[in-house]
Design a protein around this nucleic acid. Structure first.
Lengths: 137, 137
DNA sequence: TCTTTACCTCAAGTATACTTGAGGTGCTAG
DNA sequence: CTAGCACCTCAAGTATACTTGAGGTAAAGA
């Protein structure tokens, strides 16, 4: 089976080496094999790491991730795993809605300042914020 | 003009009172009027606070927000404001893409564990992870 | 043989974003 | 008049998620 050095994994995932060691230390990324003292990551480790990144990037704390993996690993009551995942799914849904709305606000502001700048360049009158309704974005 | 107490603003935005004071202290939320010692927020303050929340929720740090507002407030070179907003817009776009992809992974995992649970309940054979391609989510 | 490179451990330090606590003011309801 | 509430300041404390540093090993290239 293919294995990877810590430097390779670091590059693959864009995570600092120190972070990989940290995740292992707190038990999030267990069962990393060794060649002497040096870590050797296998596909399982990479899959786990991908899951960590996915959940972390969607707003789970490392503590919650520890709980989730604990539930997954020791074949714990599956209802708890499903519950946790469902809750998180809903959180992600909410994030998506909020993110899209925030995106509209930011685009609107960008458009406004871009127009002000262009108006200044062309010695035109300044645009009016009231002409930038959210419905346009 | 309508004004609001700190408790009202806290409720409106779902932010702790301590956070409102903190934002003011670090200069993010300036020009809050006082009735004696007590803060009174006006519409401008609320607009600024809404902007803070919007940018913060899309991943800007408070330091970056300070820079942005500095650029906006002292009518600084507008190119810098536009640049900052453009960069942030791109970051939000990236977040959206990543969030959607992560959502697919999470839904897939949720479906998988739901199916395992249901299989256990019905004494059916366990599903196979390979039957859960990302393309289905 | 030297030294550079790539790792290692373990303890302590750091950045960000708040939160908490001590001690105090000023209005209002009983 | 006094109790309680809503607010205040300022300094110190905290949670999360890492990062850094000191001191060391082991193998590979010059």
């Amino acid at each position: 089976m293919n294995t990877y050095t810590i430097a390779e994994v670091s590059a693959k995932f864009g995570l600092p080496i120190s972070t990989l060691r940290y995740y292992e230390e707190i038990g999030l990324l267990p069962n990393v094999a060794r060649d002497g003292k040096n870590r050797l990551y296998n596909q399982d480790n990479l899959d786990r790491l991908a899951a960590i990144c996915c959940f972390k990037d969607t707003g789970m704390t490392l503590k919650e991730l520890q709980t989730l993996f604990q539930y997954e690993d020791q074949d714990h009551d599956l209802n708890e795993v499903v519950d946790l995942l469902q809750t998180h799914c809903r959180r992600v849904e909410d994030q998506l809605v909020l993110l899209k709305e925030n995106q509209r606000h930011i685009r609107r502001k960008l458009q406004y300042y871009t127009d002000i700048r262009d108006a200044q360049l062309n010695h035109q009158p300044h645009p009016d914020w009231n002409d930038y309704p959210l419905s346009k974005f």
